[in-house]
């Protein structure tokens, strides 16, 4: 059991769970009012990007994968979140 708790994968999971709770609280704090909130949106999207990257690198084991796989997955994340934030800010 101790080895499970000390396992790097469990530490990554603890981090992911914590930021999930934090991002939910950010949304509740800043977004209960039915208003556009650029700070909340930027924060929760960046947190989502970091969480996705953590899952891809550590759970999907891409950190040990060949360069083409690292570049493809990181490229997808970077491209996606750049587009999402660009469309969001362009529409304000």
């Amino acid at each position: 059991m101790t080895s499970l708790i000390r396992n790097p994968l469990t530490i990554v999971w603890a981090l992911l769970t914590t930021v999930t709770i934090v991002s939910s609280l950010i949304a509740l704090e800043g977004g209960a009012a039915h208003q556009i909130n650029t700070t909340v949106t930027t924060a929760v999207l960046l947190i989502a990007a970091i969480k996705a990257q953590l899952v891809i690198r550590h759970f999907m084991e891409v950190r040990r994968a060949p360069v083409w796989l690292k570049v493809t997955t990181s490229g997808w994340l970077l491209g996606l979140f750049t587009l999402l934030l660009s469309f969001y800010f362009a529409s304000l």
């Binding site: 969480k51 996705a52 999907m60």
Partner: peptide, 18 residues
């Protein structure tokens, strides 16, 4: 894990962003 990654983005887009 891919299913997990997709949900993380969906959760932010549908529930969290303002």
């Amino acid at each position: 894990h891919m299913v997990d990654v997709l949900w993380l983005v969906l959760f932010a887009l549908l529930y969290l962003m303002r």
